[in-house]
Design a protein around this nucleic acid. Sequence first.
DNA 1: ATCCAGGCAGATG
DNA 2: CATCTGCATGGA
Length: 270
Amino acid sequence: MHSGQVFRYFPKDNGFLVITAAHWAQINVTGQQAIIKCSNADYFYRYFDFDTDYQQIKTQLSFPKLQKAIAVGGGIRILAADFTEMVISFIISANNNIKRFTKTLNDLCTQHGTRLPNGYYAFPTLEQLAKISVTEFKNLGCGYRDQYLVKAIKQLQTLNTDELRALPTPELYQKLLTIAGVGPKVASCILLFAFGRYEVAPVDTWIKKAISQLTPEEQSQILHGPYAGIAQQYIFYYLQHLHHECLWWYNGLWPKSTPMQNKKPARKLD
DNA sequence: ATCCAGGCAGATG
DNA sequence: CATCTGCATGGA
C-alpha cells in the first residue's frame, strides 16, 4: 500500500482499509498470513494481481543495483487501479508533493464522492467529476491544475476504457498524451497502474536522481525490459523509505519509533 | 527567503 | 525535435 501507486487507504482495525473507485477492502496481516475482507472478491483478486508470480519477476530483476530495493520492498505488487481515478490522481500529482496531493485527493472524495456504507467515501464517478468547476478544483488545492482537470474530465467522457485496454502500449501512450495535464510521466503511471503495462517505467524527479548515478548499462537494465515498471516501483519505494517522506506519515500509518526515522537523506541505491 | 515536490503546457529556437 | 519558462501551494 505504501508504494505510491494509490493514495486512498487508511489505518483501520489494526490493518488498512483501501478504497479504489467505489470498492473497498480491509487488509489485516498476522505473521505470514493476510486476511482480506472486501466488497467484491473477484474485483480485489484482480486488484491485488494475485494471478501474477512476483517471485519469478524478482528473479528476472536480479540486477546488483536492485538488490537492496527488492529486499526492502519485495512485497510490492502492481495494483490494478481504476482508470479515471489514476488520471485525476496523477494530474494532481504533477509538480506537487505526495503529502499535499494525498490530502487534496481525500478532500476531493469526501466533497464529491458517494458516501459508502462503511463511512468512507468513494472516488467521484466521471459523472460526479464532470460537475466540479474550475474554482472548486482550485479550492481543493489543485492550484493551476484546476483547468487541466476540467478539460481532462471532458475528454475522459469521450473515451471507452475497454477500447483503450485493447490498444498496444505505444498507441495507448500516445492517446493518453492527448489528455490535458497528462505528459510522459503521468501517462506512464496510468499505463502501469491502470492498465498493468509492466514494461513502462515512469521517470519522476526521484527516479531521475537515483538513476543518474548509475552506468548506462545499469540504467538500461532497470528502465528497459518487460518488468521495467516493477523495477521502478522497487526503487521508488526504497527511496521513499529512506526519506520516510511517503504518505504513511500523512496518514499516520507508520510507528514513530521505527528505526528509519533517524536515517539521513540519501538517494543512492546502494 | 529560497527551493522543492511522482511535470506539464505553451512559446521559442 | 530540443530546450526554456511560468505555474498554485505549503512545507522544509
